[in-house]
Design a protein around this nucleic acid. Structure first.
Length: 111
DNA sequence: CAGATGACGCCGA
DNA sequence: CTCGGCGCCATCT
């Protein structure tokens, strides 16, 4: 029961580690940036080897989080200023879409 | 080998 | 907007 390619695991971990505090990404976003074949793999990788990276900044594209993680994950995000409306995060506001922002092209205002 | 299961995503009703 | 169903990849029964 070995796992996914070590190279892929490393890439996923790097992408997750590069997410700034106060911003989040969807599993699908991480999959694209890391070149993972599917978002499901990202979840699996984080479950096994995500303990030492900011895994709480990765959630579903609709802003919800898995039930068994909700309490911890939402608390961690809240501590960074990512507020949830009940069980749901407002992705429009916190989603981090540009890992390498162009100079002068800032993130959308956090109103 | 076939079916079920997840830290998911998208589309149609 | 919510719900259900199907596709997705790798692993487990």
């Amino acid at each position: 029961m070995d796992h996914v390619d070590d190279a892929l695991i490393e890439r996923v971990r790097e992408v997750v580690a590069s997410i700034p505090a106060g911003r989040v990404l969807a599993y699908g976003d991480v999959a694209e940036l890391a070149g993972a074949p599917s978002p499901r793999l990202v979840g699996r990788i984080l479950a096994v080897d995500g303990h030492d990276v900011p895994w709480h900044r990765v959630l579903r594209s609709d802003g919800t989080v898995a039930a068994h993680l909700a309490t911890d994950q939402l608390a961690r995000l809240r501590a960074e200023g990512v507020l949830a409306d009940g069980q749901r995060i407002d992705m429009r506001r916190y989603r981090w879409t540009d890992p390498f922002p162009e100079p002068g092209d800032d993130q959308p205002a956090l109103w």
